[in-house]
Write a protein that binds this DNA or RNA. Structure first.
Lengths: 336, 336
DNA sequence: CTGAAAGCGCTAACAA
DNA sequence: TTGTTAGCGCTTTCAG
């Protein structure tokens, strides 16, 4: 059982050296003989001493802690990133503090106060299109995951990592076309925005054009893709109104399940009659039978980049670049 | 943009009072006139001052922070609890630090060091049958979620909240029986343990006995229920060997999907021929069509209890009880 | 009602 | 190579 009361002074006394020396030993700062080192280390072990990080933080004006701001941990993709971040940070001796914004910028603003008060060393923000990162303390390094590369950011100490969605979408569309699809249903919950800026639609458009295929406006569906029901209804409507399609590119696996159920309900076979691809390669895509084709966005790689460049900024290293893009991979399974 | 440099001394100077008074005002400690209060508050706002929590933590020997130890945030149920905990703690002015054990007690032990070093005010441990809570600093209040009530714990400052799984299982079994099931398949990934201690099997057994039904040993299935495939294979084997059953009680929704797919593959209709109930009421149960009947274990209520009694312990209040049990609710949907 | 001052545990500049 | 000491920003006792 860990005790909570022995301080650096106790260790200094017990090992017959000064606190400065103990501090040096603890932090591997050199300037001590091997003998002192061993003696101090022995006493530390003996008394089961753990340096008080609060005191250290106060002194060096930095907590060995990182704030992770994300919409909701309950989102599988965000959770996967958060898990990996925490693991990596732990190995580096950092604590992970989490803050769920629930897609509400008000929250994010209040969090930023707390984060400042905590003297965290850095922030990782999993972007939700709502959080205004300009509200965060300017001297704290911050990296955004999923932050739209087109958004201009003025602050120093900033980097972003994001998925090359345009390319992923291009690959998805090409995969569908290669499987014989000609009339592809494009489903998104951000269609209006995407048509303007987002890469996902651009990749789709490019692939269609390159293959000499027309985009049927009626097959551009803008629904809530965080669940299955809206997708189910949308597809049902389409079927009933006799609009034909032979491939579906969804921006979530949940939507893909809705699409598949709707097709099945009308005796349209997947993948024979219609091929379907989801997004994020979540658990449900593997749970399904046939397993749903999807897009792997490599949360562990995103976390890796994020932590690496955050640490670089914290350690005052010059970043060779401020944008890390991870390319997604299309996983073809039973629904194509 | 939040600045990071103004201290309590600055506020004291600017408002012409001592730091002691500023401190009193900040913490609503009384002993100041309304005028001083207003003046101080005005200056605080003006300078956008946020008290340095690290300094405070050092002084009062407690961080306004709670450590949440859990197997993995990627588990939907754990994530739901974590999300709610973080929200509540934030409202109470506490930071949430997370630690994923990955079901590995080694990790948990190393976390306990870090937690001690951080002077957290309390710990919430979402139990995974692996973590040894005796390894945690003895003076820090701790509440375990899901901790088996039969496990003896000696430490002070300890409370647990758990689901009455026995009752939930009893209700599930009764629901299946009420729907006409007689040969019920009981699926678990902890069968051996359950037959000994766990309440889940007890509830099943009780309901069967009360209804004069025999438990068919061949219908007690012990497989990995964290995914769908093991359940799929187990059910397929059962069908092939001609062992009949008309109801399935799973301990996860993932397993339930595997069961349903296996049945469908053999043209066995759900719910007509076989009724299926999952567990945890996760997203996939609602995604499915027909939606999968499941058991709602109220993560938000579990979080609420956990945070409440943790706060009580932190504030030195005497707990009226050390066990909080939340009763689960069976949600009947399309598969029954 | 208000202020002076000690000190939480640590780091780092400076002295030896 | 080692020690002394100031001070990080805050709370709290004690004196007024």
């Amino acid at each position: 059982m860990v005790k909570n009361n022995v301080s650096i002074r106790d260790i200094a006394e017990k090992s017959g050296v000064s606190v400065a020396t103990v501090s040096r030993v603890i932090n591997n700062r050199g300037k001590y003989s091997k003998e002192t080192r061993d003696r101090v280390l022995k006493v530390i072990r003996e008394f089961d001493y753990t340096p008080n990080m609060t005191a250290k933080a106060l002194r060096i004006r930095r907590q060995q802690a990182i704030g992770v701001i994300l919409p909701e941990v309950t989102n599988e993709y965000f959770a996967a990133i958060t898990l990996k971040i925490q693991e990596q940070l732990f190995d580096l001796g950092y604590i992970t503090m989490i803050f769920n914004t629930s897609y509400n910028n008000e929250y994010a603003v209040r969090y930023s106060e707390m984060i400042k008060a905590q003297n965290v060393s850095g922030i990782i923000c999993i972007y939700d299109r709502q959080t205004d990162i300009n509200k965060f303390p300017e001297d704290i390094p911050i990296v955004c995951i999923g932050y739209d590369p087109k958004t201009k950011v003025k602050r120093k100490n900033f980097a972003r990592v994001y998925v090359d969605v345009a390319h992923a979408s291009w690959v998805v569309t090409n995969a569908l076309i290669a499987k014989g699809c000609r009339k592809i249903l494009y489903m998104s919950n951000w269609l209006k925005k995407e048509e303007g800026v987002s890469g996902r639609f651009l990749g789709f458009k490019k692939a269609m054009e390159e293959n000499g295929l027309e985009i049927d406006k009626r097959l551009l569906i803008d629904v809530d893709t965080t669940g299955a029901s809206s997708a189910y209804e949308a597809v049902t409507r389409l079927i009933k109104s006799g609009i034909e399609f032979d491939g579906v590119a969804c921006n979530s696996d949940q939507a893909a399940t809705g699409v598949i159920f709707a097709l099945n309900a009308h005796n349209i076979n997947v993948p024979r009659d219609v091929k379907v691809i989801g997004f994020d390669n979540t658990a449900v895509s593997k749970l399904f039978m046939p397993a749903i084709s999807s897009v792997e966005v490599r949360p562990e790689l995103q976390s890796k980049y994020a932590v690496e460049c955050l640490m670089a900024m914290i350690n005052g290293e010059k970043l060779d670049r401020h944008e890390y893009v991870v390319s997604a991979e299309v996983i073809l399974r039973g629904t194509t």
